[in-house]
Structures are given as C-alpha cells and as structure tokens.
Design a binder for these strands. Structure first.
Lengths: 215, 215
DNA sequence: ATCGGCATACCCAGAAGTGGGTAGCCGCAT
DNA sequence: ATGCGGCTACCCACTTCTGGGTATGCCGAT
C-alpha cells in the first residue's frame, strides 16, 4: 500500500458547510490533499479534468445533475479517478446504482470522520469501501433478484416526478400530452417495480433519490 | 458593538460534517470561540447549561427533538443565549416559527460562510439576522395573516405523520382508535391550515419539517 | 423473424380521498 | 357564563385512485 505520495481528493457537495467540514477534516491528514471543491457535479467535472484527482468524493443528492448520473461522466472525463459516493441515506437502490455505475465506494454522511478517511485510503489503493451493512445488502440483492434495483424507465421516472409533485393522473396526462389511461398504466408499473403502493411512499422515494427538490 | 471579549458559540447539528465545517470556519475567526458541539438538541441543552454560550447555532431538522421545539427549552435553560437557527430550507413556516419561539436569527445552510459569521456577530450584539429574502417574507405574512404559520395541533401533527407515512384514513383510524370520519376531519383541517391540497404535498411538508424520517 | 420491453390506450368495479356540510363535548380563558 | 378552539363523529355527492385486465405499434436483441 504505497502511501508515499499524497492522495489527491476532489470534493463535490452542494452544501458549503459539508464541503468545509470535509476539507477541514481531510486537511488534518498529511497524506491527503484536497485539490478542489465544487458544489455542483458539472463544476466538479471541470475541476477534475484540470486537477486529475486520485479520488472524487461526491454527494449523491445534488441539484441539476445528481451524483449517480455524474459517475458516468467522471468515468469518461477522468477514467483513473476513483469515485467515492457520499450520501445521507442508507439506500439499497443508491448503493446498487453507484456500484453499477462504477463507483469504488459508498460512505454515509453521518459516519465518524475517520471512516471517511479510511474509505478514501482504501479506494485510492484500488479497493472498494462501503459504509456499515452495505455490502451485505448488496450481496443479498445480487443473489435474489438482480433486477428491481433502480429499474424505472425514463418515462416512468418522468411520471414519478410529476406524481410526487402532487399532480393527478389527469394533470400529468395534460402536461405530457398523453392519455390519462397511459399515465395510469405507468403509475402501475412504477408502483409494481418499486414495490410501493401509496402516493406518499412514491413521494418519499422521489425525495430520497433527489428526483424532486425538497422545497 | 463591544467585541472585546470572544463570542462563545455552541453548535448543534446532527450531521458531523456540518458540525465540523462550522467549527472549522468559525475557528478561523479570533473573536469567536466554539465552546461546544452537539448532534442532538438534548445534548446541546446540557452543554449550554455548562458552557453558557453567547450564541447557540442550531439546526432545525434534527431527530428526536427538532430545533424549533428546542428553542423554548433553551430559552428556559439559558435565557441569555441568543438562538440562531440554521436550516436547509427557505421555508416561511420555519422562519416564522423560529421567530415566534424567540430565535434571534435564521441562516440558510447554503449561504457563504462569511454570512454565518456575520449572523453570529449580529445576534451576539443583540440584533437579529435573517438570510436572504427572509425578512420580507416575514413582513408579508405579518401584514396579511398572522395565523397559518405553524398552526398544527399535536393531534393534527400526529395524523400528518401517519398520513405522510402512506397510511390511509382507515388505517390511521385503527391505529389511533378513532373513527375514520374523524381522521378525515383532521386531514381536512391540516390541508386547510397548511394550504396544501395533495397527499404528496403533505408528505413533502412532513419530510422537510423532519416530522418523519427520510427512509 | 420473433420475442421482450417500452410506451401507448382503454375498460371496469371497487376502494379511497375531496370538499362541502353539521354537531356534540370538553376545557380553558375572558 | 359564554365563547372559542380542539377533538370527536357523521353525511353526501363527486372525483380520483387502485388493481385487475386487454391490446397495439415500435424497437432492439437474439
């Protein structure tokens, strides 16, 4: 485990305080260097292109471009960088999606700071790191059903967003210029896929995933 | 504005990283001293009793005891401390509720760090501080309708929580051992009071307010 | 070329929520 | 004591959602 040279870390999180906190914590470690901070994924991408970080520590819930979707872009832009996802939520779907997209690890925001450092060290060394009971959760999924992870089609996602925003089938139909029956059908498959039967559940799902803003 | 002696600040936020960030930022200022950090309101209370801070900087969304409700307790425990609320959300209800409870200010988490420092200085000096377009929003409210701010009764709050958790009227009725009609009535007044007409809206409201957990 | 997934559209019967009422009871405050 | 707010309960007409179908056209993969 060569730790001669510093680990270059790029931080991306839309909350300045979290960014500040991470930076403060990480900078107390001599072998870690924060090469940049960004509060949007797009900014992070530009920075990554210039600073070539070893590890990108990125939040999942961000406006405009969420962390999960951003992974792909980072993989393209800076293929050597290890992606370490940061999230508030211990959500199977998030974790799975992160892994599928190629993230090297997943840490929860409310873990002790040391764990974040450990995670950075691990992924920098080419390993993978997952907070808490994460790997088990993943394995369970893998064994049982590989599908049903983040299985919504883009159309369904679109409808879920409107649904969670409080729109009725009819309103959504108008907005999307399709039949209310069709919206109904989509709604059904969304519920079936997610295993959620109530509107409240869908709203929470959408909120957790950052599909809709919290205000 | 006597700034001879240091401003003693107590930080309360359930996210370690935010706490860390705040501490890091504030400690770069010579006239500010962080006398303690807590990640729950109750812990903060104990700490406040011991450390007698000038300013308590407290998050609104916290598990167990939320920031708004905690204000009252702080007022009782440490009457001289100025309460400065910290929140993710630019929500009128929050702001109003904070003010009504006796908070001296309200800052959003995504403001530049300097603004937080400015806010601390201001409230420490006996003033009030509100982020962004906050005071206008408040004034508008004051002029029009002073009610409809955070007006839910505890029973209504109880029902809102179950509602947002995806329970139906009937289920809630069973849980609370009351008639489904009554639940309906409560539901109506909740919606009327909050000016929200959809279940999705209620769910989001509940989530924002930390009434229910996000997972 | 065929099969599966996706998006579209429709039907239906039953369940649930909506928004408008009314009303009794209790406790607290004026 | 009178009133008001909160909690309870009920009714009704209407709308919407639910969960079960069927079906068609398209596209991409095998």
């Amino acid at each position: 485990m060569s730790e001669r040279e510093k680990i270059k870390v790029l931080l991306i999180d839309n909350h300045p305080l979290v960014l500040e906190g991470l930076k403060a914590v990480l900078e107390t470690f001599a072998h870690i260097m924060v090469v940049g901070t960004a509060h949007l994924a797009r900014q992070g991408l530009e920075l990554a292109a210039r600073t070539r970080p070893t590890v990108v520590l990125m939040d999942i819930n961000m406006p405009q471009l969420n962390g999960i979707d951003a992974i792909e872009l980072f993989k393209r832009e800076v293929p050597d960088a290890k992606i370490l996802m940061l999230s508030m939520h211990d959500s199977r779907e998030y974790i799975s999606a992160s892994v599928l997209q190629g993230a090297a690890g997943y840490v929860l925001k409310d873990v002790p700071n040391e764990e974040i450092v450990a995670a950075i060290e691990t992924v920098a060394g080419g390993g993978t790191y997952f907070s808490s009971g994460v790997p088990e959760a993943l394995l369970q999924r893998r064994e049982s059903e590989d599908a049903a992870i983040l299985p919504l089609t883009s159309r369904e996602r679109e409808i879920l967003i409107l649904l969670a925003a409080g729109q009725s089938n009819k309103e959504i139909a108008t907005v999307l210029a399709i039949s209310a029956f069709t919206v109904e059908t989509h709604r059904k498959s969304i519920k079936k896929k997610l295993g959620i039967s109530t509107t409240a559940g869908l709203t929470r799902f959408a909120l957790e995933r950052g599909l809709i803003a919290e205000a």
